[in-house]
Amino acid sequence: MIVPRPIAPRMLRLAALGLASLLLLAYVLGPVMWLLSSSLQTEREIVSIPPHWIPESPTLANFKAIFATGLGLARPSPAGTDPSSGGFIPSVAANLLPAMANSFIVAVTVTILNLLIGVPAAYAIGKIRFRGRGLTLYAILATRVIPDIALVVPLFLVVRKLGMLDSLASLIIAYLAITVPFSVFVLASFFEQMPDDLDRAARVDGCSRLRVLTHVYLPLARPALVAVGLFAFLASWNEFLLALMFTQTAASQTLPIVVAGITSDFTVSFSFLNAAGVLAVVPPVLLAVIFERYIVSGLTAGAVKG
C-alpha cells in the first residue's frame, strides 16, 4: 500500500537543507564580502573597532584613484601627506592598471597558444594509435606531479641567460609549461569519448586528418574548448611564484605581483589594499560564475583520469 509522504518530514528536510546551504554560503562568501566591504570604506572607517561589517559611508575613492592614476589623469599624493585626511593616493596605485593590462596580455596569449598546441596533440592522443602514445601520456602525468617550485631554479637561470628576465614572453613560455599538459589531458579524454565512426566516415570521403579535426570534431568539442581555455586563462591570471621570480619592473609585473607588493607595504591603507584585491578578483570570479557548467565538467574530465 502506498501512503503519501507526510508533509512534516518534507518540511523538516527542506529546513535542514536550507540551514546547511546558508552555512556553506556564509563560509564561501563571508571572507569575500569582508574583502569587498573593506574596499568600500574610507581610511578612517577601516580602522574602527569593532569593525564595520557594512560600510557606513561607502566610497569608491580607492577605485577612482586606481583608474585615475592608472590612466594618467591624476598624480599620487606626495610623500608626507597625512593619510588620515582622506584622498591619499599611494604611488603604487598607478601600477595597478598597467599590471592588469600585463595580466590580460599574458593570460590571453597563453589561452590561445594552449588551444593551438593542445587541440592537435589531444586529438592525436585521443583518436590515433601510435607508438609512444603511452609514453606521451606518462610524460603529461609526470608534469602534473612535479612541483612548480622545482622548475623555478632552472627556469630562472635559463631565462636569465637568454636575457629574457623582466619580459612578458618569459612568463608566457613558463605558463605554457604549467597549462598545456592539463589542457591536453582534458581534451584527449573528451576526444576519446567521441565515436570513431565520425573519423572513419570523413576519412573515407577523402578528408585529411586536419580537416577531420577542424570540421568534424572541433564543433562538437566546444564545451571542452571553453573549459580548457578558461583553465589556461585563470591559471595565468592567478599565477604568482614564477612571476615573482621573472619580473622586476612595472614593465612586466602582473597583477598578483603588484598586489603582493601592496600587501607588504605598511604605508598603504587597509582599504586601498582591499580595493586592489577586489580588482584582481573580479575577472576570474566573473568568468568562473558565468561558465560554471563548463568548468565543472572540465575539472571532472581532467581529474577522473588524472
Partner: peptide, 26 residues
C-alpha cells in the same frame, strides 16, 4: 556556482584577504 568563487580567486588575493582577516588590530 558560488562554490567556485574561492577556487577562482588568485592565491595572492586569498593571502591578502586572510592576512587582513587575521589582522591583530582591525
Amino acid at each position: 556556482a558560488c562554490l567556485l568563487i574561492p577556487w577562482a580567486i588568485p592565491s595572492v588575493v586569498n593571502g591578502l584577504m586572510w592576512k587582513w582577516i587575521y589582522d591583530s588590530n582591525y
